[in-house]
Design a protein around this nucleic acid. Structure first.
Length: 224
DNA sequence: TAGGCCATCTGGTCCT
DNA sequence: AGGACCAGATGGCCTA
């Protein structure tokens, strides 16, 4: 069972060597001569002076020991904080791994970086939402049974309303602009570099929508 | 070898 | 008071 810091503080006092205890006791507890100063009639002025110097030395030693104890306490707290921080980061990484595992179809041999994972997840969510939105539109207008959402085509949207390049991009929104992605401010940003350069980390353009068709009966969506 | 990514440590700040 | 969270620093590993 772990000790709390206060536990440690208390127990650390018990870790003194016997001589430490003796020093502390002699400084803190009443001496046979009472109240910490010499009242014995047998004390000479010389002995009194020696005793004062001895007390001064002991106080000095005690201060050094107290500083050492504080240092030890700080060090112990730091070690525990480091341990917690390590665990926290491990939990964060586990969550990222879970996220990676549900992002479809990236090659098993290449692990998405953290930033790629987050951006891909963002774009994936956006694409799912967009697909559902289009499916709802199709329900409302059954006569329009063929749709071509623009984000399914590398060439860009087929109409201004079905916009936005590719949801599979992991590019930074701050990276270079790509005309396809600028038509809808709510869509994930996309860079040309990413669109053409990082696709080895992504799944096929058509994979996700086909899955979605099966899952959501969005059978009106067709591909070229 | 430079640059990217990552794990870890660390001190500060906020929250309970 | 103690834990959670955060951001900066640092060093190791890998790749182009």
């Amino acid at each position: 069972m772990d000790r709390t810091y206060s536990d440690y503080d208390a127990s650390s006092q018990m870790s003194f060597s016997p001589s430490d205890d003796e020093d502390c006791l002699s400084l803190q507890s009443p001496s046979p001569f009472s109240n910490g100063h010499l009242t014995s009639p047998t004390q000479t002025p010389e002995k009194c002076q020696e005793h004062k110097e001895e007390k001064k030395k002991r106080r000095g030693r005690s201060r050094v020991k107290n500083e050492a104890i504080l240092h030890t306490i700080k060090k112990t707290r730091r070690v525990k904080a480091n341990d917690r921080e390590r665990n926290r980061m491990h939990n964060l990484n586990s969550a990222l791994d879970e996220l990676r595992s549900i992002l479809p179809c990236f090659p098993d041999d290449t692990k998405l970086t953290k930033i790629e994972t987050l951006r891909l997840a963002h774009n994936y969510i956006w694409a799912l939402s967009e697909t559902l939105r289009l499916a709802d539109q199709c329900k409302d207008k059954p006569e329009n049974n063929v749709m071509h959402p623009g984000y399914l085509s590398p060439a860009g949207p087929s109409s201004p309303g079905s916009d936005a390049g590719s949801w599979m991009s992991t590019a930074s929104p701050s990276s270079s602009s790509f005309s396809v992605c600028t038509s809808n401010p709510s869509s994930p940003a996309l860079s040309e570099d990413c669109f053409y350069g990082h696709t080895e980390n992504m799944f096929s353009l058509h994979t996700m929508p086909q899955n979605l068709m099966q899952q959501h009966n969005t059978c009106y969506i067709q591909y070229q």
